[in-house]
């Protein structure tokens, strides 16, 4: 009996060993000293904006993004203005990825004829088995165009009165493939405010996120609390906190972002401090962001023709 078992073993063992061989080789490849790899987490968000706010996603170096942002009129305007479709505010802009950690952008807004520019710097990238958060710093500037506003008597008008600055820290975490959240401590400085009533500097905190419904569709949202200046009036109109809810739909070449928002401004200054509509009573706007990317500088793997097959 024992002999039979032994001979069976003797026959079976080499076979088992042969099957295990290739697997063993694979184990050799995977054996990196047994440490869990700290891989950077990718695609925290689908796009460089949640809806209005910037995300921790940067354009890849050498990528130019032509962006058309559109906010229609108030849905509450009713059938006379075709629920807002008859008038709209627009921002057209160009974003560019300079390096892996730096992207910049310029844009023109129809609202207040503002021109804006920004730079976004990646400070920290979330890593699997490592860094828990991605952190970016956003700095923006906007310069309103158009006619000078009516100033109190005796006050001189300077060009700098048109300017406002925005600073944000973007703290994001991809909790799972489906859920990503971002906190956005924000400081807006406006050179021209009625300083008898309000401060030039508005401090706010934004919260945003996305929930992926499928590989190509995600629900998005963002909200800004204001720590001060929440009673600020814009040309006599009450201002509200900005709330936007929408969805990202990804087709082959682009991400379409469709949403409802109570802000019709698209610069940080504008949607944080100049939102004069409210979700109550349906004073919201339908809007979309369209982006089209162009690869201006090819990745290094494709610069020689060698890899072009």
């Amino acid at each position: 009996m024992r002999r039979i078992i032994l001979s069976v073993l003797a026959v079976a063992l080499p076979f088992a060993a042969a099957f295990a061989q290739a697997d063993k080789l694979l184990d050799e490849l995977n054996d990196d000293g047994g440490k869990a790899k700290k891989e950077p987490v990718t695609s925290t968000f689908k796009a460089t904006r949640i809806i209005n706010s910037s995300t921790v996603e940067n354009l890849a170096p050498g990528v130019l993004d032509f962006r058309i942002l559109h906010r229609f009129g108030r849905v509450s305007d009713g059938v006379d203005n075709f629920y807002g479709f008859d008038n709209a505010t627009t921002r057209i802009g160009l974003d560019y990825g300079v390096t892996k950690w730096l992207m910049v952008g310029l844009g023109h807004n129809t609202l207040f004829k503002a021109n804006d520019g920004f730079a976004k710097v990646k400070l920290l990238t979330q890593k699997k088995n490592g860094t828990p958060l991605s952190i970016s710093y956003f700095a923006g500037i906007s310069v309103d165009g158009g006619a000078a506003p009516k100033l109190p008597p005796g006050m001189d008008w300077y060009f700098t009165h048109r300017m406002a600055y925005a600073h944000q820290l973007l703290l994001a975490r991809k909790f799972s493939n489906r859920l990503s959240l971002q906190l956005m401590p924000t400081v807006i400085h406006q050179n021209l405010v009625d300083s008898t009533k309000w401060s030039n500097t508005t401090i706010g905190l934004g919260v945003g996120g996305r929930i992926k419904v499928s590989n190509r569709v995600a629900i998005t949202g963002e909200y800004y609390f204001r720590g001060n200046n929440s009673d600020m009036l814009l040309s006599g109109a009450t201002t509200y906190n900005s709330l936007s809810i929408g969805c990202d739909i990804e087709t082959g070449g682009h991400v379409f972002q469709l949403f409802f928002t109570n802000s019709n401004g698209m610069t940080e200054r504008s949607f944080v401090t100049q939102t004069t509509d409210t979700w109550e009573k349906g004073r919201i706007h339908f809007g979309f962001n369209i982006s089209r990317v162009f690869t201006v500088v090819k990745p290094k793997e494709f610069r020689s023709t060698k890899n072009n097959w």
Binding site: V293, P299, E301
Partner: peptide
């Protein structure tokens, strides 16, 4: 690596 970052 892809030529277009979005493709990647």
């Amino acid at each position: 690596k892809f030529k277009r970052a979005l493709m990647q």
